[in-house]
Design a protein around this nucleic acid. Sequence first.
DNA 1: AATGAATGAGTTTTCATTCAT
DNA 2: GATGAATGAAAACTCATTCAT
Lengths: 203, 203, 203, 203
Amino acid sequence: MDEKQTFIAEARRLQIVDATIKTLDEIGYIHASMAQIAKRAGISTALISYHFRDKNELMDDTLKKLVSDMNTYVLERTSATIGPHDKLRAYIEASIAYQAGRPSSNYALIEIVFHARTVDDVPYYKLDDDEEDPLESELQQILRMGQEQKEFGEFDVQVMASAIQGAIDEYAFNGKLKGSVDPHSYSKELVNMFNRAVRRDIS
Amino acid sequence: MDEKQTFIAEARRLQIVDATIKTLDEIGYIHASMAQIAKRAGISTALISYHFRDKNELMDDTLKKLVSDMNTYVLERTSATIGPHDKLRAYIEASIAYQAGRPSSNYALIEIVFHARTVDDVPYYKLDDDEEDPLESELQQILRMGQEQKEFGEFDVQVMASAIQGAIDEYAFNGKLKGSVDPHSYSKELVNMFNRAVRRDIS
Amino acid sequence: MDEKQTFIAEARRLQIVDATIKTLDEIGYIHASMAQIAKRAGISTALISYHFRDKNELMDDTLKKLVSDMNTYVLERTSATIGPHDKLRAYIEASIAYQAGRPSSNYALIEIVFHARTVDDVPYYKLDDDEEDPLESELQQILRMGQEQKEFGEFDVQVMASAIQGAIDEYAFNGKLKGSVDPHSYSKELVNMFNRAVRRDIS
Amino acid sequence: MDEKQTFIAEARRLQIVDATIKTLDEIGYIHASMAQIAKRAGISTALISYHFRDKNELMDDTLKKLVSDMNTYVLERTSATIGPHDKLRAYIEASIAYQAGRPSSNYALIEIVFHARTVDDVPYYKLDDDEEDPLESELQQILRMGQEQKEFGEFDVQVMASAIQGAIDEYAFNGKLKGSVDPHSYSKELVNMFNRAVRRDIS
DNA sequence: AATGAATGAGTTTTCATTCAT
DNA sequence: GATGAATGAAAACTCATTCAT
């Protein structure tokens, strides 16, 4: 009984989060008012307030879901491979594929990350905290593994990881790029390029 | 007389644009109300409305100035060098240096690009139009030149350019990265890395 | 069976009224939402709506209980005495003692009287109806008795009663007074003072 | 020029405060929304927000005006008399006359005092602070003067002052009393009564 | 009898914009 | 050119009340 009620409430929360993602994708963070989200969820704004303390909590939960979904998707695919070269390829391909496969989630994520702020009013993207980003960790670990196994050459792991991530994110941020290069080609090219960037110098 | 008035008006517009940049950097796009901008400019909101048709135009002009300043800075420095390798190095170094040297402009640019929208309500970052981005063109031209002169190997120019730009932008977007790697080191590492990525395969 | 149900219902109503008093004392009428009252009663707001037609009825019943409790307390003590002087003393002492002994009830009463309104939207304190106030009647009767028995002098009974009541109420309304004079001293002084005020002029 | 603008703004503020008093009198604190006040002032709610930081400031300013007006009225009349007996009479008569002459102000004052709260959420009437109430001070001083000049007998000055004030306030709070005794009679009776209460015992 | 879920009406406040001066 | 004054629209949020279960 109690579980059933919690189940209903949880379903509602999920529905609202989904409507939030849809809204963010369609009209952007700035216009994503409670009314707009409620309209897309087919409910009243008061019901959102009933399930979420305030708009901040709603956006926070939505962000958490988006990040968690993406992390799961990418990490599952890198775990399924062995060896630094294959893992790097899997990481790049999965990241691009995720973006390409769920454009709504992708845009919603961008809208939140670049608009939402912490309680101290610091934008998320400026944040310089200790909190660990699982994807960043995984990527750095792959690179470090490659160096230890002498498959990769010498380079700063953090910088290389950032460059790879930046190249991936560029596909998310750059409408023109997305419009003229299909995701499969883009990830294939990226893999080749970074294979050259990480390889040991042949003396 | 007429010129003088235009001159005064132009100075006022510039002052307002500068206040807008300051405001965007300090409190972000969402809180950047006309009142906040006016406060920083030391004028009334009505005067902003007098000089700019609406907030959209103000943000548009601000964006144009930010982009133009950055373009000028980077293009001046790549023009001063010769040969694909040196030009690529100059491009990367100038891009990072610009970001590092003007954090306010940098953050203001990000805030606008990821929040403002065209009249058709399309976010700038999703935009897939024909308008040419001078930096992108320059970077692609450098890469193409390198390939023609057989200094660079085979790769998709657009993808390589996007990866380079993405790696550069990552430094702007990633607070943690900025906090732990100084700009000089980052650009140096990036130059080395992309030198490997673009080089011809030595068979 | 029916009685039992009524009994349970009555207990529930009483519990809700008590929670209302607690809420009024703690956070005041304005913040005394159904949710706040329900929280203090440990039940849902819907249950309050089930037992009371609307918030008005709840406040009305609460007011009735508060007034009735106070009336009972004071009237019991005046009934236990004989003669106008002793009765007047008993009335004053009991009134102050009641206030001092139940600050919660006292504040709840004030909050309702000065905030709630009749269905015709008339504040209770402005009300000029025929409804008899038992305390006022008792006080007037004491004064009248004193005059008839030649123990008290000539004065307008209604005005004297109002003055006595006003002096008593002042102790309820005036935080500073309450903070600097203890209830026992206050009622003792009041008794002396009004003994002089009501006495016959010694010609 | 600057003065003129300030003058206009000040007139507006006064107009809004007057509309607030009218609103409080007519529909009470709880229903006195910004919209209701704006309606009575013939302006938009936004204009109220333009002239007052928030509703709290509006109510605070309104309370200050109400208290200040009343204090001025009463103190002017007591100052115009000499000697404790005459001053006491003037105090009582002026207090009642003020209430009777401006019922709207009187009710508005009651509505605010019993509804508004400090930033720490303490109701004004519960407040036990050091802030001096000019009327209370004046009344106590009159009583003290009477005792020093041997015109008044022995009694606790604070209690006597509270009783007098309570008797006066009763006329403000008690609709039934107001409906059946005219203010002139009430103050006359009060003066006689308290003359007996303060007089020296004739041994 | 009791409650979680849901809503419409209403709250204060902010904002871009307009206009008389 | 410049501004104080003013507003309509929209924002997030609260609340008393209803209803299916």
